[in-house]
Design a protein around this nucleic acid. Sequence first.
RNA 1: GGUCUGAUGGCCGAGUGGCUAGGCACAGCUCUGCAAAAGCUGCUACAGCGGUUCGAGUCCGCUUCAGACCUCCA
Length: 486
Amino acid sequence: MEAIYLYNTLTRRKELFEPIKPPLVGLYVCGPTVYGEGHLGHARAAITFDLMFRLLTAVGYKVRYVRNITDVGHLVGDADGGEDKIAQKAKLEELEPMEIAHYYTEKYHDAMRALGVLSPSIEPRASGHIIEQIALAKKILDNGYAYVSNGSVYFDVEKYAAHHNYGRLSGRNIDDILTGTRDLDGQSEKHFSADFALWKNASAEHIMRWPSPWGDGFPGWHAECSAMSAKYLGETFDIHGGGMDLMFPHHECEIAQSTAATGHSAARYWVHNNMITIGGQKMGKSLGNFITLDQFFTGTHPLLSKAYAPMVIRFFILTAHYRSTLDFSDDALLAAEKGFLRLTKAWRVLRETACTEPVALDSELKNKCLAALCDDMNSPVALSYLFDEVGRINSHVDGKAKLSDAELTDLRSVFDLVMGEILGLEIPVVEGSGTLAGVMDLVLEMRATAKNEKNWAVSDLIRDRLATSGITVKDGKEGATWEIKN
RNA sequence: GGUCUGAUGGCCGAGUGGCUAGGCACAGCUCUGCAAAAGCUGCUACAGCGGUUCGAGUCCGCUUCAGACCUCCA
């Protein structure tokens, strides 16, 4: 099995990945809070860990990939009167909270499918695990790391910090956290503002509520991931992933919760993807500078010159390493689209000319690509190796430098494996079948006749009119071919 | 203010001290009736200043600039 190296946020260095019980791997990733449209940032997180899921699987691991849906418990503000995001939106639109959650969950799934993101092994919802979250809060209470206050349960950060290292994931100093947060107004339910809710008392008008030993309420945001990861992956598991912006407080609190409940932290490797920026600034809800995935797919945003195929978005994201910020611009996307088209054209050639039988290969190209991917998922480098082959493939098509059958087969299996199986890219569908294909055959035949008669006026007219309709004619050595420009 | 990251050619973006990442754009050439497509060739950058080293984009220090987190955020 290929050795995989991953950058572990916990140790701030690249480490050899060693699962607890090979070949099993437990992977937990924070999914979306379903109260709004998905944007490019959601795509990046999903694609990053989709790549991890695919890579681990491809090298032989048996992965249980758990990615949650947060449909309750995510507070708008940390103030004591903080309202649940989904409940707030529901009130605004006079909908049942679950209608909101359902609507955006469906939209999220649609977008993920389009982006080639595989469905995880389990996709648990926070609202379906209230019992587990109550149990977690109880256990932490029993262990003395939480307190009940006015029907809510809060995690006692100061007490926890006295025995454990609170802040080790995010590199935060507990003294700074505590001294900086002692000045609470007397109204607060919390002892310190750094304390966070494990369970939240629901006020009379609050629409999302469940019974608990402390009265009606709802679970705190951080509790769900600890509860669900423990339920499906066990008290300790291999990898926990998520966006860098979740490092603090969310992931820090998760570690504290698990440690307070079980005596040890749950995940061994913490992996964080970086942000998408726009004009050098983080793309995000709070800044209001995000572009939704629907807008990309339809081209309906002032910053977009056109619609982009989901696969182009995926390719664009994979051209950067997951731990670097990736700056979005229409120009960058345009460039990515052209590059992607060039790469997939070569891939299509391989699909059409090379033998379909899978071969056991140990080619240099495959090894190079796998080595790059296994080195902390360096997708841009793997792609650069594939690009190196495009010239050879095109020369072969031009008849300038023939590739042997063995070479073609080898190239095809590497492209299928690396581009398809691991990077999850797909060749865009060309509607070159059925009625249209028949008509095009006829049109190109007529044009060929005109060309033979040196009737350039007619042949050029055909070509130009087709171009107006979005069809590009390309004259090759063995006759003309066509494709739909997208 | 605290903590942490980063600064690479026209643009995007890799680079684990030692020969050219790659893509897009651009220029020239080949092919072609013309064009498109494709191929070939060219384009050698690492914020600034010091230091370590036989050798630094890559390590160390300082400076400048940018960003992230410290509230919700993928």
